[in-house]
Amino acid sequence: MMQLECPNCGPRNVSEFRFRGEYVERPHDGADPARRRAWAEYLYFRDNRAGVQKEWWYHQAGCGRWFLAERHTKSHAVENTRYWGGEATS
C-alpha cells in the first residue's frame, strides 16, 4: 500500500486519506452568462494528466487536515505535500 505524507502527521498508509481530485480554481464570476462555459469546465473538465498532478487529499482517519499533494499519477511518487497556501514539504 502506498504511503502518503500528511504535512501534519508524517507518512501514513494511503488508506487513511481520502482523495478529492485534481486541484481546480473556482471561477469567481461563474454566474455570469458569458462565463457559462468556464463554469462548466470548472465543474466537469479535468486535465487528467499521466504525470505529476496537483490534487487534494484529506487525512480522514487522522488529523482531519486537507492538503495538496503533487503526485505522479503513474508511478505514484509524491513530490511534495503542503497545506493550501503553505510551503511544500520534502
Binding site: 478529492r20 487534494w56 484529506y58 486537507w66 497545506y83 493550501w84
Partner: peptide, 11 residues
C-alpha cells in the same frame, strides 16, 4: 463536515 473543513482550509 469534510466539505466545510475543505472550504475552511482552502480559502
Amino acid at each position: 463536515y469534510e466539505n466545510i473543513e475543505w472550504n475552511l482550509q482552502s480559502g
